[in-house]
Deep mutational scan, measured.
Amino acid sequence: EPLWIRPDAPSRCTWQLGRPASESPHHHTAPAKSPKILPDILKKIGDTPMVRINKIGKKFGLKCELLAKCEFFNAGGSVKDRISLRMIEDAERDGTLKPGDTIIEPTSGNTGIGLALAAAVRGYRCIIVMPEKMSSEKVDVLRALGAEIVRTPTNARFDSPESHVGVAWRLKNEIPNSHILDQYRNASNPLAHYDTTADEILQQCDGKLDMLVASVGTGGTITGIARKLKEKCPGCRIIGVDPEGSILAEPEELNQTEQTTYEVEGIGYDFIPTVLDRTVVDKWFKSNDEEAFTFARMLIAQEGLLCGGSAGSTVAVAVKAAQELQEGQRCVVILPDSVRNYMTKFLSDRWMLQKGFLKEEDLTEKKPWWWHLRVQELGLSAPLTVLPTITCGHTIEILREKGFDQAPVVDEAGVILGMVTLGNMLSSLLAGKVQPSDQVGKVIYKQFKQIRLTDTLGRLSHILEMDHFALVVHEQIQYHSTGKSSQRQMVFGVVTAIDLLNFVAAQERDQK
């Protein structure tokens, strides 16, 4: 057995438009009618409502009807409940999964919650491996369901041993009777949507819809739904939504950006999952974080739909894509998950301010006199920076000697690579993860907040409520011999709460 199987392995699926269902090699399930009293909570997966979006479509000038398939009504709160249950049931049916076995899954959280929910009911041990950027709410729900959680670096490539995929496979090879159901490759993922989600949409719309818009992560949702719609409703256009920084969209030119990270969760990847059939997507749109969270908040405030950030991405694209539809036509959007997962993220004004998705003037509360002053007023001194090749031991000596707790790590040209902190280095040394002679590049981390000289002290204040420091950066445009230009970030300084307090105190003292 291989040590790991690539999540982007070539698909062996034989589905073709027009091929009889009787030739399918898979076990198919028909939607079942729910009894009045459910035998367990797993029976509350599927049969989610279709809700008309009344205000947002009109606000953006849509002539067509805009409908939302509300997947956050599933038992675990997301569309991923469907595939989690289906993968477990299919693994039980073919004898792969037996009582007492362990389920391991690399996930952005929602599939993990679905699997942990099913594992709690069915009696399996469950280990979820997820990147650090995923919300604390997801972690809390997983723990409450009895799952064990392993976190991995957000910026690790999918084929790196440190990625959530790599760590999951390492655990599988170490733990007896453990299984990775593997949402990236498992046919049960798109089949769950082909058999149930798509049929529900067709039934709820009486077979009449002209466009379907869905955000894409593993691709199982859009693949399964689109294949069924292509068979039953061939005139329906399928629109895929991919965040900026991901590479799922086609044509490839759409993916060209210097951005590699994004805040919206559960969609987009740096590889093409095996289950994603991009041939059934008629057109791709890219979405960005700001519009995703703005539209998610709009869905909550104006439509009462308590959905997550990827739902915002989907609707932001839908109001663009559906401009081509006329009166009497219908566009369906998939709202994948609930706001429950993001209470401390985009639902929080403070978080939105820190990330730059909300401006101070958007909030009406009274601010102190210094709130709208610029960061450049602080008069920061030149920063202490270190090269990635310097040793951890030497870096600790320098920081202690100069009285700093942290320093930016830059390359020879001064471009920011990340940050090192005294606390992080000492804990890594004590844990045996690094040696004093190791290069400081081994303990770089990139989960820090950046701020510009033109940003306000109010925004800085919000950042420092949650973080010990902020890195002050400025952009530099560099022209190359080819005539092309590129933008790079340079370090201007490091600012802490002490710097802000000293500035405010000094100004008030001078005024007296």
Rank of each mutant, 00 (worst) to 15 (best):
T314E: 03
V440N: 12
E303K: 04
S461G: 14
F346E: 04
E412C: 15
V317C: 10
M352I: 08
Q329D: 07
F357Y: 09
V319W: 01
E252A: 15
L306E: 00
V472W: 12
M490H: 12
D270L: 01
N288E: 13
Q447T: 12
G309T: 00
L430G: 05
W370V: 09
V275Y: 00
A301G: 15
P383W: 07
P408Q: 13
H372K: 05
H394G: 11
D337T: 01
V491W: 13
I334N: 04
Y269D: 02
N424S: 02
M490L: 13
W370K: 01
F448A: 03
G414A: 04
L422G: 08
I238C: 05
E324R: 04
L501M: 13
S313M: 04
L305R: 02
E258M: 09
G328Q: 08
E263Y: 12
S486A: 07
F285C: 07
D467K: 04
L299T: 04
R488F: 14
C307V: 04
L471Y: 14
M490D: 13
W351H: 01
D438K: 11
R509D: 12
P336C: 07
K402I: 11
L453E: 14
Q447F: 11
N288Q: 14
L248F: 02
P408V: 04
T395F: 05
V409D: 03
K283I: 07
A497Y: 10
L353W: 07
S486Y: 13
S486C: 15
H474F: 10
Q329T: 09
V315W: 02
E365W: 15
M298Q: 10
I396N: 10
K286F: 00
T456A: 15
I239D: 02
H394I: 12
D499N: 03
M490E: 12
S287Q: 07
F295W: 14
Q489I: 11
W370I: 01
S486M: 15
T395V: 12
L429E: 04
Q487D: 14
M298A: 11
M425E: 05
G418D: 07
N288L: 12
I396V: 13
E265T: 02
A322W: 00
A407S: 14
T294Y: 15
T456L: 13
V275R: 00
S485E: 14
I498M: 14
T261I: 07
K442N: 15
K512S: 13
R374A: 12
W369Q: 05
P408A: 10
A413N: 14
G458V: 12
Y269I: 02
Q435R: 13
S287C: 15
D277P: 03
L305H: 00
A301D: 11
L306K: 00
V339E: 05
Q439H: 14
K320Q: 14
E508W: 10
Q354E: 12
L457E: 01
G441E: 11
K320H: 04
I498D: 15
H462I: 13
T364H: 11
E397K: 14
G403I: 08
V472A: 15
S313E: 07
A470T: 15
E253F: 07
A316E: 12
I272V: 10
V415P: 04
E361S: 15
A382H: 13
G414N: 04
V472G: 12
I498Y: 11
L248P: 00
Q439R: 09
E265P: 02
K433C: 15
D337H: 00
A431I: 10
L363S: 10
Y479W: 03
W351V: 00
L358I: 03
Y342I: 03
S310W: 00
V280N: 06
N502D: 15
V386Y: 12
E360I: 14
D405S: 09
T261N: 05
V264C: 07
Q323C: 10
G493Q: 05
L363Y: 04
E397D: 14
A311R: 03
G423I: 03
F285Y: 14
W284K: 00
N502E: 13
G308Y: 00
D499H: 04
L373C: 09
W284G: 00
L358R: 08
R330L: 03
R350I: 10
I396E: 08
H394N: 11
E265R: 00
K433M: 14
V409K: 00
E258K: 15
T385Q: 07
E252Y: 12
L378N: 03
R297N: 01
A382D: 03
H394R: 08
M343P: 01
D282E: 12
L429G: 14
N288K: 11
L254G: 02
F295C: 11
S428F: 13
V409W: 00
A505C: 03
T279M: 13
S381K: 12
Q302I: 06
L347M: 07
L378V: 06
H462M: 13
T482M: 12
A249D: 00
D242K: 03
V434Q: 10
V410G: 15
K286Q: 06
R452L: 14
V410E: 13
V281L: 15
Q259M: 11
Q507T: 05
G493A: 12
P243T: 01
Y262K: 09
E377H: 06
G418T: 08
G309H: 00
L384V: 13
F293K: 01
T496R: 03
V420Y: 15
P243N: 06
E252S: 11
Q406N: 09
V375F: 09
L363T: 12
E265V: 00
Q329M: 14
V281S: 05
K512I: 05
A322F: 01
K367T: 11
L426D: 05
G441P: 05
M352S: 02
V443I: 14
D455E: 12
Q478S: 15
D337P: 01
I334H: 03
A497V: 15
K449Y: 15
S348F: 06
Q326N: 13
A382C: 04
F404N: 02
Q476K: 11
F492L: 14
M298G: 10
D455P: 09
F295T: 15
G312R: 05
T314V: 13
N424Y: 04
G423T: 07
A311G: 04
D349P: 06
M352T: 06
F295L: 11
C307I: 07
L453P: 15
I396W: 08
L500F: 15
L335T: 00
L453W: 09
L248W: 00
L248C: 01
G328C: 12
S427W: 09
Q329E: 11
R488G: 15
E324T: 10
P251Q: 01
P243L: 00
D405Y: 07
W284L: 00
D499F: 03
K359H: 13
T454H: 09
V332K: 00
L429F: 15
P408G: 10
N288G: 12
K283T: 03
N424H: 13
V241A: 04
K442D: 15
S287P: 05
V333S: 07
P383T: 11
K366P: 11
W371T: 11
P243E: 06
Q406H: 09
F271C: 00
W371E: 09
I477Q: 05
D438P: 11
S485N: 09
P273A: 04
V264H: 00
H462G: 15
L306N: 01
R509N: 12
T456N: 14
Y445N: 08
M466I: 15
Y445M: 05
I272T: 08
G423M: 06
D467Q: 09
V409C: 12
S428Y: 13
G356K: 07
S486R: 15
N255L: 02
P408F: 03
Q259R: 13
Y445V: 12
R340S: 02
Q354V: 06
V472D: 04
G458P: 08
R278G: 07
D510S: 11
D337R: 01
T261L: 06
L347G: 00
L430T: 15
K442R: 15
Y269T: 05
I334P: 00
V473K: 10
I267P: 07
C331R: 04
V472H: 05
Q476W: 03
P251K: 04
Q511S: 11
D242W: 00
G266N: 02
L248S: 00
Q376H: 12
